[in-house]
Amino acid sequence: MPEWKKVCWEDVTDGQDIGSYEMQMDAVKISCGAWATRDSNPIHHDKAFAERGSQKNIIVNIMHSEGLLCRLATDWSGPTGELKRIRFNIRGSCYADDTLKVTGNVIKKYIGQDDNYMKGLHLVDLQVNATASGNPFCDAQITLALPTKKAHS
């Protein structure tokens, strides 16, 4: 059984790099993402349709994009990091044949103070950015709850 990463809240510092990954996009990957998210818009599987809409190729859909951004967050934290909140922004498009690159860093760590579902949790806010062959694609501010060394959670 593989050993999974486990980032504890105490080990995190504001501003720290959370690593990156790259993925080569192609028509198979993009259409796979569209169907896995039940998105039947032809802009995600039909190149001729995309070209009629003045796009150069099919593009990665929103729900797939969000998954790709959140993946970096939990790749970094390990499976004990829990996704609590995502604020997502689109900046451009990611086409078949683009190289997707996802990077991120810690904005800040804190204990949830607001009177909501995150109160008392050990939280980190992450900035995660994605580019497509170097061009802006999308980004997100992602809040993760992390285990602490004290609570053995």
Partner: peptide, 24 residues
């Protein structure tokens, strides 16, 4: 699993029964 393949997300909570059973 289809979603995990598209995202290439290895988080074992989503697909690894044994790991997930032992998790919170």
């Amino acid at each position: 699993r289809h979603w995990v393949e598209a995202v290439e997300d290895a988080n074992p909570l989503y697909t690894d029964e044994e790991y997930a059973r032992g998790s919170k």
